[in-house]
Deep mutational scan, measured.
Amino acid sequence: IRCIGVSNRDFVEGMSGGTWVDVVLEHGGCVTVMAQDKPTVDIELVTTTVSNMAEVRSYCYEASISDMASDSRCPTQGEAYLDKQSDTQYVCKRTLVDRGWGNGCGLFGKGSLVTCAKFTCSKKMTGKSIQPENLEYRIMLSVHGSQHSGMIVNDTGYETDENRAKVEVTPNSPRAEATLGGFGSLGLDCEPRTGLDFSDLYYLTMNNKHWLVHKEWFHDIPLPWHAGADTGTPHWNNKEALVEFKDAHAKRQTVVVLGSQEGAVHTALAGALEAEMDGAKGKLFSGHLKCRLKMDKLRLKGVSYSLCTAAFTFTKVPAETLHGTVTVEVQYAGTDGPCKIPVQMAVDMQTLTPVGRLITANPVITESTENSKMMLELDPPFGDSYIVIGVGDKKITHHWHRSGSTIGKAFEATVRGAKRMAVLGDTAWDFGSVGGVFNSLGKGIHQIFGAAFKSLFGGMSWFSQILIGTLLVWLGLNTKNGSISLTCLALGGVMIFLSTAVSA
C-alpha cells in the first residue's frame, strides 16, 4: 500500500470489461488503480535517471590570480610587451599612462603600459546536455494484498515479495511487465516523455548541487567559461569578468580578483528545477510519464477462499488518510488461513446495510499462523458509518465519521480527471477507425466523469442509474429551450454510458 502517505494521489477506475487503462505517473504523486474483478494496485514513479550526459560548457565562479607582471614604455618608444601576453592562462590589459620627467621619461606624453596576471579557477559549475534516449524511469508497484503497516513504502525485498514489484522503462524499451506472483502480471506500455523539453534544458552542477536550467539563461551567464570537458589546462574565455584592473600608474597597475560568485548564482537559480546525482547518473524529480496498463493477466487472489471465522482485533486505531479513506490494521487469532476477511461498512448496526467501498479488493489472510496481521483500506461514505470486521458474535466494529460532501468530492474528481486527460493529450485517442474513435470517446468520458459518477451514484443499482439517464434524455427531447435540451441530452447520455461502463 504505497499511496496512503502521498498527498498527491489519483484514483483511476477501469471500465467494466476493459483490459487496459491509461494513467499519468508523476514525481511526488501516486496512482491507485481499481477495476472490477482485479486486485487494487498502487503505482508510483520513484526516480527518473539520466546517463551519458555530455559537458557543454563550464563557468568559473571563484578564481585566484598570481605571478603579476607589468612592462611600460616612454612616449615614442613603441608598445610595451610581455611574453605572458601569448599565454592563455594569463589575463592581460594594455593601456596608456601619462609619462614625463617625473617618472623617468625625457618627453612628456602618453606611454604604453601592459599588465598580466595568471588566472586560476578555484571553483566552477558545469552544464551538461541531456539526450531523451538516455532517460530511465523506475516504477514501483504494490498490490493491496496481505501486507501490514511495516511494509508500507518499503522498497527492500521486492524481489521475493509477490505484493510488490519494480520495473524500469526507457525510450528504447518502453514496454515492461511486472510479475506479482499469485496476482498474475501487469503489463506497462509507457510513452517516455517527461513533459520537459530537454532540447531547451541543461543539467547544471555547482558545488555538489544540481538544477535543470534553460539553455539561453545558461549561455548568457557573465562569467569566465570554457567549452567542452575539462582537459586539465582549460582555456578560459572572458577571464576579465572576475578580474579587475585598478587605476594605472606610470610603471605598474594593481590587479585584484573578485570574490566568489556562488551567492549571486544561487539567487539567479531561484525557482529552477532541482535535481540530484546518483553516482555518474543524474536524478530528476520533475515531469511525468504516461503509461497504458494492460490488466488482462491480472487476477484476484483468494476468490475461492472461505470466510475467516475466528476473532479479529484492531492492532491500531483506524486512521484517516490524506485522501479521506480509512486504513485499518487487524490481527487474526485463527489458524484456518488462508481465508477471506469479512469486512464491510454499514450505516447502522441493526440492518448492516453496506455503504462505501473497499479500496483493498478481496482482502485475505494468507498465513495459517496465529496472530497474522493484515492492513486494508476503505472508502467510507460522508457522515457517520460503522466499520464491521468478522462474522457472528466475534465481529468487531468501529464508529467512523467522514466530513465533507459527495458533491465536493465529485467536483474534485472531475477536475482531476480533466487534468489527466489534458496530460494524456492525443495519445488517449485513436482515429484509425470508426470503432477506435468511439472507443476513445468512451475512454475520455470515463477518465473525466467516472470518479464523479461513482461518488454521486455508486450506491444505486445499474438499472436505477439507466432509468435516471433515460429520464434526462426524455426531458431533453421534450424541452423547447435549446440549451436546457442539449444539457439534459448530454447528461442523460453520459449517465447511461457510465452506468453500463463503470464497474460497481
Rank of each mutant, 00 (worst) to 15 (best):
I1V: 15
N8T: 12
N8F: 05
N8H: 03
V12M: 13
S16V: 01
G18F: 01
T19R: 02
V21I: 15
V21A: 03
D22H: 06
V24H: 07
V31C: 04
V33N: 07
Q36C: 11
D37N: 14
K38T: 08
P39F: 09
E44S: 00
L45W: 09
V46E: 13
V46I: 12
T47C: 00
T47E: 01
T48P: 04
T48D: 08
T49K: 08
T49D: 01
A54D: 01
A54W: 09
C60D: 07
E62A: 13
A63S: 13
S64V: 05
S66W: 10
A69E: 02
S70R: 01
P75Q: 02
T76V: 06
E79C: 10
E79Y: 07
Y81G: 14
L82T: 04
L82C: 10
K84A: 12
Q85F: 02
C92Q: 11
R94N: 06
L96Q: 06
D98F: 09
G100E: 05
W101K: 04
G102P: 02
G102A: 11
C105I: 05
G109L: 03
K110R: 10
A117I: 04
A117T: 11
K118I: 01
T120A: 14
S122A: 15
K123R: 14
T126S: 13
G127F: 05
I130P: 12
Y137V: 05
R138K: 12
M140L: 15
S142L: 05
V143I: 08
V143M: 13
V143G: 03
S146T: 13
H148A: 11
M151E: 06
N154Y: 06
T160C: 09
A165P: 14
V167C: 13
V167D: 05
E168Y: 15
V169R: 01
N172F: 06
R175D: 09
R175I: 05
R175K: 11
E177S: 04
L180Y: 09
G182R: 05
S185F: 15
D189L: 01
T194Q: 08
L196N: 02
S199C: 02
L201S: 01
Y203N: 12
Y203A: 14
L204N: 10
L204T: 05
M206E: 05
N208A: 15
N208W: 02
H210I: 02
V213R: 02
H214W: 10
W225L: 04
T231C: 00
T231K: 03
G232S: 12
L242R: 01
K246H: 14
A248W: 08
H249W: 11
A250Y: 08
K251V: 03
L258I: 03
E262A: 10
G263K: 11
A264E: 08
A264G: 06
V265P: 12
H266K: 13
G271V: 01
M277L: 14
D278Q: 14
K281F: 14
K281S: 14
S286H: 08
S286I: 01
H288F: 06
L289G: 01
R292S: 02
L293P: 09
K294N: 10
M295F: 15
M295E: 05
M295D: 11
M295Q: 06
K297W: 02
L298W: 06
L300K: 05
Y305Q: 11
L307V: 13
C308E: 07
C308F: 11
T309A: 11
T309F: 07
A310W: 09
A311G: 12
T315A: 13
K316P: 01
A319V: 15
L322V: 11
V326L: 15
V328G: 01
E329I: 11
G334E: 12
G337C: 11
P338L: 12
C339A: 02
K340H: 08
I341T: 11
V343L: 09
Q344R: 09
A346R: 11
V347R: 08
M349H: 15
Q350T: 04
P354R: 15
P354M: 13
G356P: 03
R357W: 12
R357S: 06
T360Y: 05
P363N: 07
P363T: 01
V364D: 00
I365S: 03
T366A: 15
S368F: 10
T369D: 15
N371Q: 02
S372D: 03
L378V: 13
L378F: 13
D379G: 10
P381R: 02
P381L: 12
G383C: 04
I387R: 01
I389T: 13
G392V: 00
K394C: 02
K394P: 05
H398D: 00
H399S: 12
R402M: 04
S403K: 00
S403G: 01
G404Y: 08
I407C: 06
G408C: 08
K409C: 08
A410P: 05
F411N: 12
F411I: 12
E412I: 06
T414S: 05
T414D: 06
A418D: 13
K419T: 10
A422W: 13
L424R: 05
G425F: 10
D426C: 06
D430W: 11
G432A: 14
S433Y: 02
G436S: 15
S440E: 08
G442Q: 08
H446L: 09
I448K: 09
I448M: 13
F453H: 13
F453L: 09
K454V: 13
K454M: 13
S455D: 13
S455Y: 06
F457Q: 10
G458W: 11
W462T: 13
W462P: 10
S464K: 09
S464E: 04
Q465V: 01
L467C: 03
G469V: 12
L471H: 10
L472E: 10
L472T: 15
L475Y: 13
L477C: 14
T479W: 06
T479R: 00
I484T: 15
L486T: 01
T487W: 11
C488R: 00
L489K: 01
G492E: 01
G492R: 10
M495C: 08
L498N: 10
L498Y: 11
V502N: 12
